[in-house]
Amino acid sequence: MSLILVQILNGLQYGLLLFLAASGLTLVFGILGVINLAHGSFYMIGAYMALTLTSYTGDIFLALAAGIPLAFLVGMAIEWLFVRHLYKRDHLQQVLLTFALILVFNEAQQSIWGNYPKSIPMPSYLSSSISLTTDLGYSVYRLALMAICVGLALLMMFVIQKTRVGRLIRAAESNPEMVEALGFDSRVLFRVVFAAGAALAAAAGMLAAPVESAYPGIGERVLIISFVVVVIGGIGSIRGAFLGSLLIGLADAFGKVFVPKFSSVLIYALMALVLVLRPNGLFGRS
């Protein structure tokens, strides 16, 4: 397998994982109109939940089954306690409160799990590596991760395009007031959407944990890149987030190898280019 094919694989894998994290952010931003800086914290919480829950269940996928509902509940609680007060406030206040949440979450993470990096075990049946070239192996877990991400992306698109909840989400994204005026309590919808966003980010954090490990500051890195995805894809667009994530994943994988001098600015240059050509992102509406 040539280096180019390997890099396509690497880029797709990174992009798919990024999609899980960014899709929740774009939903919350698009429907609730809230700039949620604490989104990365849910990713971090996911990584540490993976640590704790795998220590009880012994398997990352069992941990995932318990962790996703748990993250959903945490999301509901955070929405009820804090975020719902932000819907009619300006972006500055949203940024201030959600930034404060990052500090609280980080402080909690340090006191619960400590500062040292922690490793989350891979399930033994996926912990081997296959050979891509004579010199290079590829973790089977990463392949499984890609399959799961694709599955979740398809499921998400199905839910959004074909189900009642999906209709509600799309309707709320374009005209939340009318959703309310047609008899749907938007408070419930907003809470569910926020919690779903949190659960998606946490799921990404948990799924990535066996390769990514868990360590302080892991959420902030994901937050910044997720915002880039949202801007590229168009605020509120799941399809946009999908395409944007893959674009960034590929740009990152190829940039590091073929234009290493510019790899740190490449994704931001990509974002700028998209903004020039399509100011509302690839799938954004004006």
Binding site: L3, V6, Q7, N10, G11, Q13, Y14, L132, T133, D135, L136, R142, D252, A253, F254, K256, V257
Partner: peptide, 11 residues
């Protein structure tokens, strides 16, 4: 994100 540079090292 080390995957891409690991591929390069291998090559």
């Amino acid at each position: 994100e080390f995957q891409s540079i690991l591929a390069e090292v291998a090559s």
